[in-house]
Write a protein that binds this DNA or RNA. Structure first.
Lengths: 219, 219, 219, 219
DNA sequence: AATGAATGAGTCTTCATTCAT
DNA sequence: GATGAATGAAGACTCATTCAT
C-alpha cells in the first residue's frame, strides 16, 4: 500500500485523535443532518426512529449509541441548528458598528440563513414547539439570549423608562411568529422580503417609527 | 314499540326536542369540558383517548359517535375555548368607545379570562401548538381575526404609511408569546399584572410611546 | 328471557359482585392456568408474552391490564401453584394425628399433587429458579414456612440439642432437590415411588434410622 | 513460508508449542476469568456479550473464535470453576485417612474455597441454575460425582440397608441449598461458620447424631 | 343506546452475531 | 490476526379503534 506523499502526512505530535471519538462525532453529525431534514418534513410527532435510521442509513444500534432516543436526537438537532444560525448571524454583525446597524445586519443575516436552509429553520422555529417541554426550554433560552442584545436599543430612546419592561420579549416573540408563519405556509423563499418590515418592528419602539422607517428603507 | 301512556306524554308546545340531538349536544359539551382539562394538564401528545373517556365518564362508542378521534376532539376543544374567550372579550368592549379604550378593555378582559380559566387558556395558547397542522391553522385564523381590529389604530398614527405592513401580526404574536410564557411557567396567577405592559406594547406604535405609557398608567 | 327459578336467584343483599372485578378475576385465572403450562414447557427465559397471550387466547391489552409484565405474571403463577399445593397438602394432613403421621400424610399428598400436576410442579420447583430474584425470594418464603413444621420433630429426638441448627433447611433443600431432579428428567410419573425414601430422609434425624425405616415401610 | 534462521530456532525438545493454540488457550483463560466475575455480579440472564468482551478487553471476533456464544461461555465458566474447586478440595483430603476425617477435610476445604472466591462459588452454585438446561446438566454431573464418595459412609452405618437409596443425593442437595442461601444473601463471609453444621448433617445418618455431633465439635 | 372488552398494528429498544477494514 | 462497527431480528409494551353484548 502506497503511503501518502510526505508533505501530506500528519506532522509528528499532531497525532490523529482517537478514531472512535472521531467516528462518533462524524456519525453524529451525519445523523443530525438527516434528522433535521426528516423532522422538518414530517414533523416531530410523526417522525419515528425508523425514518431517522433509514434516512441516515445507519443501524438502530448506531443511533442508540449516540442518542438516548428520539427526544434526545431532536434536542441535539435543535441545538445544532441554533448554534449554526447563531454563528452565522454573529459573524455577520460588525462588532464596532452602531447598534441600529448591528440590528440590521443581524436581521439580514437571519433572513438569509432561513432562506438558505429552510428545513433547519423549520426545526428551530416550528417543530421545536412540538418537541416537548425540554425543546421548548431550549427555545426559550435562545430568546433569553437575544433579549439583552435588543435591550441595548433603549439607549437610543428619548424616554427609555417609558418603554414596557417586556418589550424585548414581545418583539422577539412577534418576529419569531412572523417567521414561523412564512415557514409553515411554505413561503420560505419570499422570507427575505420581510427585511424592511422587521427592521421597522424591531427599531421602531426605540428610535421612533420615522427613523426606523428611514433605516429600513435604506437597507 | 309501544308509546308512552297519554298522561305521561309531553304536553303539546312543550315538545320534546329531538332526543338524540339533545343528548349528543349535551354529551359533546360534557366531553369537551373534561377534555380541555385533560389536554391542559397532560399536554396534547401525552393525552390518550382513555384519559378522555375516563375523565368524561362516557363510553368509547359515545366518544367516537361525536368525534373523529383525538385530533378532532382537540380541534373542537380549541374552537370551544376560542369562542368562549372571544365572546367574553367582545362583551367587555364598549362598542362606541374610542379605539384605544376598546383595546384597553379587550386586553383587560382577556387577562381576566386567562386568570379565571388558566386551563382553557393553556389549551388555546400552549397546547394548540402541538395539536398538529390543523390546530395551528385554527390558531392562525384567530390571529387573522384580530389583525383588522388592531389595524384600526393606524387612524391614530401621525404617519400610518410608515408603519410596517405586518405590524399587527407581529404585535399579536408578541403578546401571545408573553402570555404563553406566563402560562407555561405556571405564573398564570400573576398574569393580570401584565396589563400595563400589554397596553403599551399594543398602543405604542400607533399613539407613540408617551401616550401609550400614559394610557397604560391610567388603566 | 326467562328468569331463574326463585330459589336459585341470589338473595337480596347478596348482590352480585361488580362484574368488572369478576371478569378480571376470571381472566386472571384463565391466563395463569395457560401461563403455568407455557412456563413449564418452554422455561421462563424462553417464554415470551406472545406465547402467553396466544396460549390464553387473550389480547395483549388484556394481559397488561392484569399483569405488569412477564415477571409479574410468573410470580403470580408461582404464588398460585404454591397456594394450591399448600392447600391440597394441608387438607390431607390430619390435624390431631401425631407428628410423624402428619409428615407422612404431607409427603404423600405432595407427591400425589406433583404426579397429578407435573407442569404446575415444574413451575414451583424448577422454573422458579430462573424467574429472577423475586421469584427466588418467594421460593425461600415457602421453605421458611415449612421449617417450623418440621422442627416439631425435635420433640421426638432423644437429644434434640445435638441436632444441627440448620437441619430443617437442609432437609427441605434436599427433598426439593430430589423432586426437582425427577421433574427435570421427565420421571414425574415415577415420582410417587419416592415416598418411602422421603419419609426416611425426613424422619431419620429425629426418630433414628430404624424407626424411620419402619414407618416408611408401613406407609 | 521462510523458516527462522537456524540459531533462532528452538532447540530440539524445547519445541515451540503451536502459537495459535497457545494464544487461544491463554485468551480463553483470560476471558473465563473475567466472565466468571461478570456472570457472578450481573447474573447470567442480565449478562450480555458486550459486558464480557468489555471486561475481558478482547474483540468480539476473539470471543466467538473461542466460544459458541454466551451459553457456551457460561458452561465453560462452570466447568472451570467446578474443576478448580474440585482440585482444591481433593488436594486437601488426606487419601489414607478414615472416611469421616476425609469428609471433614473436604467440607472444610470447600467452605474455605467458597469464602476465598465467593464470585466463583456464586457461578457454581447460584447462576448455574439460570444457565439453561445444559448448565444444569453439568451441575447434576457434579452431584453425581460426589454421590459415591459419600456412599462410602454406609460402611460405618450399623444398618446400611435401612438407609434410603437417595440419601446421598438428598444430602448433597441439602448442603448445596444451605450454601446457596448464604451466597445469595451476601453472607459469604460467614460461610465458614457453617462447618460444624455441615459435618453433622453429612455424617449424622451414617454415624448417628451423637457421633456426628462429637466429630463436628472436635473439628 | 351504552358499555367497555378485545384487537393488533406499530413503536421503541436491545443484543447476539457477522463482516469489512 | 485483531478490531469494533453494522446488522437486523425479536421482544416488550401502548393505544386508537372496533365490535359484541
Amino acid at each position: 500500500m502506497a503511503s501518502l506523499p510526505e508533505h501530506l502526512m500528519p506532522a509528528a505530535g499532531e497525532r490523529a485523535p482517537l478514531p472512535r471519538e472521531v467516528r462518533l462525532a462524524h456519525q453524529r453529525r451525519s445523523i443530525l443532518d438527516s434528522s433535521i431534514e426528516v423532522f422538518a418534513k414530517r414533523g416531530y410527532p410523526a417522525t419515528t426512529i425508523d425514518h431517522i435510521v433509514a434516512a441516515a442509513r445507519v443501524a438502530y444500534a448506531s443511533f442508540y449509541e449516540i442518542f438516548d432516543g428520539k427526544q434526545d436526537c431532536f434536542l441535539q438537532c435543535y441545538e445544532q441548528v441554533a448554534t449554526e444560525f447563531w454563528e452565522r448571524i454573529s459573524s455577520a454583525v460588525p462588532p464596532d458598528a452602531p447598534w441600529p446597524e448591528q440590528v440590521c445586519a443581524a436581521l439580514r443575516a437571519a433572513l438569509e440563513a432561513i432562506a438558505a436552509e429552510p428545513l433547519a429553520a423549520r426545526v428551530a422555529l416550528v417543530e421545536v414547539q412540538t418537541g416537548g417541554p425540554e425543546a421548548l426550554a431550549g427555545y426559550e433560552r435562545t430568546h433569553d439570549t437575544i433579549v439583552p442584545l435588543l435591550r441595548r436599543g433603549r439607549e437610543f430612546s428619548p424616554a427609555p423608562d417609558e418603554l414596557p419592561e417586556t418589550l424585548e420579549e414581545a418583539t422577539i416573540g412577534g418576529v419569531a411568529w412572523l417567521l414561523r408563519q412564512r415557514l409553515v405556509s411554505g413561503e420560505a423563499g419570499e422570507i427575505e422580503a420581510l427585511y424592511p418590515e422587521l427592521v421597522e418592528i424591531v427599531l421602531g419602539p426605540y428610535l421612533g417609527e420615522d427613523e426606523a422607517a428611514r433605516i429600513a428603507a435604506a437597507g
